[in-house]
Computed example of a mutant assay.
Amino acid sequence: MAWTPSSHPISVSSKQRHRSKPTKLQIHMLSRKRYDEDVRKGMELLNLKLYLENRSIIEENDKLRKKDSLLHQENLALMSELQSKFPQLDRFATTLLLLLQKH
């Protein structure tokens, strides 16, 4: 077997050592990449949290709209009932009568 500089144990280990040691730039780039991934994951988590909160608000809003609609229909029915019982009263007087009955 012929001797070559690349087959010498010292030169091989120094090349391997040199190749495996990351530079400051490589370390910085890896750190930056990890930081960017952490920020992205954090933003995705925050986005999901805000999305779920938004969905909850929308659902609550829908429930309140339905309740409002039912109360409005009930109010119209009561107004109609009062106007049929007291045809001489105008709309303002009927509304006032309704408010006084509630208190």
Results as ranks from 00 to 15, higher is better:
K21A: 08
R55D: 15
S20Y: 04
E74S: 05
L82M: 14
S56V: 12
E37F: 11
L30K: 13
K41E: 04
E81Y: 10
K41T: 06
Q83P: 00
K67T: 06
R55W: 05
L97G: 03
L100P: 00
R17T: 03
K41N: 01
Q101Y: 12
K33N: 06
Q101G: 05
E81F: 11
S7Q: 01
L48F: 14
Q73K: 08
S11K: 13
L99F: 02
S56M: 10
K24C: 00
H18D: 11
R65C: 06
L71T: 03
K85A: 02
H18W: 12
H72Q: 13
I10Y: 00
K24P: 01
D62I: 05
L76A: 07
H18S: 13
K85D: 00
D68T: 09
I27S: 03
Y35M: 09
Q83W: 00
L98T: 03
D36E: 07
S6V: 10
M1V: 15
H103L: 13
M43R: 14
T23H: 01
E60G: 11
N47Q: 15
L82E: 00
T4R: 14
D90R: 01
K66G: 05
L50K: 08
A77Y: 03
S20A: 12
I10D: 05
E81W: 07
L78Q: 10
L45W: 02
T95M: 08
N75S: 07
E37D: 10
I57R: 12
H8L: 01
A77T: 10
M1Q: 08
L64V: 06
H18F: 15
Q83L: 12
E81L: 13
S14M: 14
D68N: 10
D90F: 04
S14H: 03
L70G: 02
S11D: 12
